[in-house]
Design a protein around this nucleic acid. Structure first.
Lengths: 108, 108
DNA sequence: TATATATATGTCAAATTCGGCATATTTATG
DNA sequence: CATAAATATGCCGAATTTGACATATATATA
């Protein structure tokens, strides 16, 4: 894992190793973060595509604007459950989410 | 949604409507539960395939046996984050998870 | 049958995530 | 530029999820 990517992750609040030995995510940890970022980016893209505000999306799933902002910003303090609920509410199907994770869905 | 499926979900602890008007999940709610159950079933299948005990998987992701049991049982009090971490630790790739959601992965 | 191993179920305090709210910052629009 | 709309950031108490532990139940193995 290159340092640029690590820095970006740490800025977002991910605990990428201790302060002393700030190195190496396991492949599982990398994949986990990768999946989360894919989904959060998809939410941002789909919401924009539909012309919704963060406020609108938030109300539609019983959440709040600040949570949606954090979700789209890749904040680690947001659960995948909330991210998936947002995606589904935006009209994304389970199948499309699958394609997203497969890497076959650069733009839905 | 048929009553049999609803009963199963309610037995697992899902809040499928109030006691009075116990009816109708929105398509999003259905898809959300569907995704969760797909993933939890996949964890069970993959763990069995590798011959791991729940205890082994739990230790491997810093969790506990009881949590894995609940995860595999479809307990709603388990986060998707924990489920995904378990799947990844079992060697399932992001791409395979995608295929699972696409419905192209009855058995990995 | 016993005995051991694996899984299920329930409870607890601690940690995390929650929605809501205030407000700072950015972006659009006049 | 000003003014408004959208988004980002930080904090709060409430709710949820956490690992842990105990223990009940089920399953395998002798």
């Amino acid at each position: 894992m290159d340092k640029k990517k690590q820095k970006v992750l740490e800025e977002k609040g991910f605990q990428v190793g201790s302060a002393a030995e700030f190195l190496e995510l396991t492949p599982e940890e990398e994949a986990y973060i990768d999946i989360r970022l894919d989904i959060s980016n998809m939410v941002k893209k789909q919401r924009a595509k539909r012309g919704w505000t963060q406020e609108q999306l938030a109300r539609a799933i019983g959440s709040s604007q600040s949570r949606i902002a954090k979700l789209e910003g890749g904040d680690p303090g947001i659960s995948m459950d909330l991210m998936i609920k947002a995606l589904l509410r935006l009209g994304t199907s389970k199948k499309q989410i699958g394609k997203l994770l497969e890497g076959e869905l650069e733009a839905v």
